[in-house]
Design a protein around this nucleic acid. Structure first.
Length: 488
RNA sequence: GGGCCAUUAGCUCAGGCGGCAGAGCACCUGACUUUUAAUCAGGGUGUCCCAGGUUCGAGUCCUGGAUGGCUCACCA
């Protein structure tokens, strides 16, 4: 509406940039040889007081006092205060300093001292503009709160919300600690294809992409499982892969279309060993990164101290719902009791599927954990070995922390004939319209036919684990750039 | 996909019953050489998410849409 731009910040900053160039100041400079980070100066003040340091960072706040000024700059380590006097830097430079804005990145050189109010400060003798910021930062008290903007413009979120940076530093440390733990135990980290001809290893709908030269459609992987097990067949007895997988499903506070898992396979172990591995891995990572096993999530305590309880799924269903499926041996009886409990059935559900539904609907949200739930029905566990005492159940467990499923593991099914029968059952579900049922994978069956050693396998959802360890309510808070619908 | 809620200045937010678009911070002009939410004097910078409708008059009421959040469904 108005041609008067005098306080339009974008316009004002663009004009300042032009004026700097006219004065011979390069607004986008070259690297500044820093000697310290902001936090080093705070931490080592006694050693550094009176000494000259070089620091660079982004101006976060300015307090002008005529011919002297204070400012705070921020680098990766934190914030430090600057003190700039006209008689220290010269009138010309001081005028340039005065034209700088919150958001600009500068390099400074000066002596470390403490102000009369006790704040550790750098008394600037010279400074250099390294990068001119053309956009105003969010306001200093309230920061950036708009959740949509925080996710879409994570760079701004990271600049103004220090807690966000802390979460992602913690995420990096957790992942590093997981790698170190597994490497120390003799596991080999491997990388398997992200683009699959057959998307297997989980119940999920895949993303589809196209390879032009081969003129074929490929799927983005929904799990790393089947390739890792091929490697165990190949003699790689202890392997893991930490990486991104993709599932073409809904988005929620616990689901992002792309997310990170670690899958771990170890020959000559079973799911009991995987329980021990899970609890030890999580507890040692928590201890190492956060220095404690007494966590808190959403205001509720979560004690990761070992050992974690192990409970049979069927026992939990009986305790929580009062239904004892050991006395309901057939599909028809199971369907009856499901209807009595008000569950909606599509028809044709097996006893095992109904037991699993009972667990999901009535039990899962009551498990705060940590807890291992074991022995899942064979119908919902097509890659897990059957229990020797009851072939309708499998040597499979899931781990719950703070009410969230964070791990899924089993004694792997290594019998190629049983595996083929399981795939065939999945194919029948797929033919009946279940788009999440597993696909037949002949090459995987071929691998099993060569002989796979008895093996325990474990998958951990890294994002959810980090949510819990950092007390983050949404998975988007632990993913730097969560999936969003594009703007415009 | 369903339900509920939100969307107003760069940011954080007010705007009763439909009657000239508001505050703080930021920004602009000026003063100020140890401040720290610096202070003091002045200045409001806007596609009220979008498109229709009702009305003399819509930020406000109605309809449709967009984006986001929570939640249910689905999944991990």
């Amino acid at each position: 509406m108005s041609e008067d731009h005098h306080s339009d910040e974008l316009y004002v900053r663009q004009r300042k940039l032009d004026e700097l160039r006219e004065k011979g100041v390069q607004p986008y400079g070259e690297k500044y040889e820093v000697t310290h980070r902001a936090m080093d100066i705070i931490d080592d003040f006694e050693k550094l007081v009176g000494k000259s340091v070089k620091v660079s960072g982004r101006i976060l706040s300015r307090r002008g006092h005529g011919k002297a000024s204070f400012a705070n700059i921020q680098d990766m380590s934190g914030k430090i205060q600057l003190y700039i006097r006209q008689d220290s830097v010269g009138e010309g430079n001081y005028n340039i300093y005065k034209s700088l804005d919150v958001g600009d990145i500068i390099g400074v050189t000066g002596e470390v001292f403490k102000t009369k109010t006790g704040e550790i400060t750098i008394n600037i003798s010279s400074f250099k503009l390294l990068s001119k910021s053309l956009r105003p930062l969010p306001e200093k008290w309230h920061g950036l709160k708009d959740i949509e903007l925080r996710y879409r413009q994570r760079y701004v979120d990271l600049i103004v919300n220090p807690a966000v940076r802390e979460v992602f530093i913690a995420r990096s440390k957790v992942i590093q600690a997981i790698r170190e733990y597994l490497n120390r135990k003799g596991f080999l980290e491997v990388e398997t294809p992200v683009m699959h001809g057959i998307a297997g290893g989980a119940n999920a709908r895949p993303f589809i992409t196209h390879h032009n030269a081969l003129n074929i459609n490929l799927y983005l992987r929904i799990a790393t499982e089947l390739h890792l097990k091929r490697l165990v067949v190949g003699g790689m007895e202890k392997v893991y892969e930490l990486g991104r997988i993709f599932r073409n499903e809904g988005i929620s506070t616990n689901h992002n279309p792309e997310f990170t898992t670690v899958e771990i396979y170890q020959a000559n172990t079973d799911y009991e060993d995987m329980m021990r591995l899970t609890e030890e891995l999580v507890a040692s990572v928590a201890e190492e990164v956060f220095g404690t096993l007494k966590m808190s999530y959403g205001g509720k305590e979560l004690d990761l101290s070992l050992p974690w309880p192990r409970r049979d799924l069927l026992d939990l269903v009986r305790e929580i719902t009062g239904v004892d499926f050991t006395s309901i041996p057939d599909d028809e009886g199971a369907r009856q009791v499901a209807l009595e409990k008000g569950l909606e059935l599509k028809g044709g559900e097996s006893r095992g599927e109904i037991i699993f539904t009972f667990f999901e609907k009535f039990c899962e949200d009551r498990l705060w954990g940590p807890i291992f739930v074991k022995k899942y029905p064979v119908e919902v566990s097509p890659l897990a070995k059957r229990c020797s005492d009851d072939p309708r159940f499998t040597c499979r467990f899931e781990t719950f922390l703070a009410g969230k499923e964070i791990a899924n593991a089993f004694t792997e099914l290594i019998d190629p004939l049983d595996q083929r029968a399981r795939f065939e059952a999945q194919m029948r579900k797929r033919a009946a319209g279940d788009e999440e049922a597993h696909m037949m994978d002949e090459d995987f069956l071929t691998a099993l036919e060569y002989g796979m050693p008895p093996t325990g396998g474990l998958g951990i959802g890294i994002d959810r684990l980090i949510m819990i360890l950092t007390d983050s309510p949404s998975i988007r808070d632990v993913i730097l750039f969560p999936t969003m619908r594009p703007r415009e």
